[in-house]
């Protein structure tokens, strides 16, 4: 990204703030529909962060799949539950919450230690070199396509089988 430093930092802080506030909103808001909408905020901020780091194809895919499809699905589901008055009698603090808290804290600690351990300079230089080599020939998303259909041929086909299984499973569950 070649934005002037301060603007870049400002955007980074702003998007990070959106991300954190949205995440807190998802967990803490009482109305599940508000939670679902703030999940949308989180996903949009993540996608904008991808754009900020120049991986725009991933950003567009994030917007299309997570915001456009999965978040809409979640909102539908929550609205559906909302009508049936299912959620209204739940305790504020259950065993599951404590368990989740434990897992999340441990993942957070693990990430922090990993981030401080990695030598980022090495990674930056190798990726920069690769970018310079590959950038002249073809665009970013073209590279994704080429890798997808040569090196990752089998995973590519497995994805379609997984999608098929997901479709069949979802239909079977929803029909009951």
């Amino acid at each position: 990204m070649d934005l002037p430093g301060p603007i870049h930092d400002f955007l980074l802080v702003f998007l990070g703030l959106g991300l954190i506030l949205g995440g807190i909103g998802v967990v803490l808001l009482n109305n599940p529909i508000y939670s679902a909408f703030s999940l949308g905020l989180v996903l949009v901020s993540i996608s904008l962060l991808y754009i900020l780091s120049n991986s725009y194809f991933v950003a567009a895919a994030q917007l299309l799949i997570y915001v456009g499809a999965i978040n809409v699905l979640i909102i539908f589901a929550v609205m559906f539950m909302n009508g049936s008055e299912y959620y209204k009698d739940f305790n504020l603090w259950t065993v599951g919450n404590g368990f989740t808290l434990l897992i999340c804290t441990s993942i957070f600690g693990l990430l922090i230690t990993t981030i401080t351990d990695i030598s980022w300079y090495g990674i930056i230089w190798t990726t920069r070199l690769n970018q310079i080599i590959e950038h002249d020939l073809i665009s970013n998303s073209q590279q994704i396509g080429i890798h997808l259909s040569t090196d990752f041929f089998l995973p590519f086909e497995f994805i379609s089988i997984i999608l098929l299984a997901a479709l069949i499973g979802a239909i079977t569950v929803a029909r009951q």
Partner: peptide, 21 residues
């Protein structure tokens, strides 16, 4: 919405494929 999610994921995978065709 469920069926849509599946097809959406499919089109996302087809895009880089189309560009490297």
């Amino acid at each position: 919405a469920l069926v849509f999610v599946v097809f959406d994921v499919e089109t996302v995978f087809l895009y880089p494929w189309a560009m490297s065709f």
